[in-house]
Nucleic acid binder design. Structure first.
Lengths: 189, 189
DNA sequence: GTCTATATAAAGATAGAC
DNA sequence: GTCTATCTTTATATAGAC
């Protein structure tokens, strides 16, 4: 039996969704309260340091989902190109179904806060580091040498972040498919 | 002799810088007033529709600078790979000098407003379209066939947007250099 | 066209009863 | 741990003198 979601988890999940869709500054605590149904008192009980603390925890949650999703997508494919193409196609089809990104992008919060909120910039940096480590390990498993794998991991990470931004802006999965078509030349060993 | 910057231009330039660094919601009109030195009355005189109107104009200005910079970077190189590598290296070294991005990224505003402010999403979409058209035209000049050039233009656009996000987050130009190193395999004709 | 003062709403945060 | 009421600051926006 699945354990019931605690108030803290509920707040965090709601915040995580809103931050991804509207960004850090675009999301108010009042909105988190309203959408989650949790009372404001509870919010400050569970997160005494307020908005910034919620965001740090929300980024950790996004990272967790990000890594789980990516790890699953990259399993059991014959080549690196196939694996990452499948990964990107998955993101694209999810987006086209729901018309919103879900657990694929921390770039918005990262860009917003890089110049002004050191603790959030740091959280995002750690998320990217773990993400890229996962990609690099998969690439090594497909036969790439370590240094090359690291460079490619960064490149694929950038490619996906950028393509997600373009997809949101054009309200279409098409940029993701363009990128996926070009992946094989990047991963031709 | 250079014409003196009008109040309207001053407001727009200041807003454009702040929006790029802190995003749309992270930048208040009061901050634009303070940093530009312009009075609040003037702001609403020149932009009667308030913040959203300023942002639409600011995005147009960013696009202009973006296109001018890119066009210049991509001139007179022997191969497409050389041209775009030079372009990315230029972005990276600019970033390392000033520790902030200047006129390279509209992705932040785009992602922030895609779900909530249709007019801004639209402005960003047009900026990306022009940007990609410039890239595609350069690629065609380097001998690529039209459809391939379009796909590559989208891919390089995504790559740069994503790498800029990673650079801001890690406070380092390194992701841009990683991406630049991988460009040749993408542009091997 | 410029500038200040002000209205009004919303933000983040806190206090204290239960 | 939960909930409401409230404080303070900041946001966007306006009015009206000059």
């Amino acid at each position: 039996m699945k354990k019931k979601e605690s108030t803290k988890e509920l707040i965090l999940r709601t915040a995580s969704e809103l931050f991804q869709r509207q960004g850090y500054h675009g999301t108010g605590l009042n909105q988190i309260i309203e959408e989650s149904g949790a009372p404001k008192g509870s919010l400050y009980y569970h997160f005494p340091n307020g908005k910034e603390e919620i965001a740090v925890e929300a980024i950790k949650l996004m990272k967790k989902h990000l890594l789980e999703g990516a790890a699953k997508d990259l399993e059991e494919k014959d080549t690196a190109a196939e694996a990452f193409q499948y990964h990107i196609h998955k993101i694209a089809s999810d987006f086209e179904k729901k018309h919103q990104m879900e657990g694929v992008q921390i770039g918005l919060i990262a860009s917003e806060t890089a110049a002004t909120h050191e603790s959030l910039r740091n959280s995002c940096q750690h998320a990217y580091a773990d993400w890229q480590a996962l990609y690099a390990n998969r690439l090594i498993a497909y036969g790439y040498e370590k240094e090359m794998a690291n460079d490619l991991a960064v490149t694929i990470n950038a490619l996906i972040e950028g393509a997600v931004t373009l997809a949101l802006t054009s309200a279409s999965g098409s940029p993701l498919y363009s990128v996926a078509r070009q992946l094989p030349s990047l991963l031709k060993q």
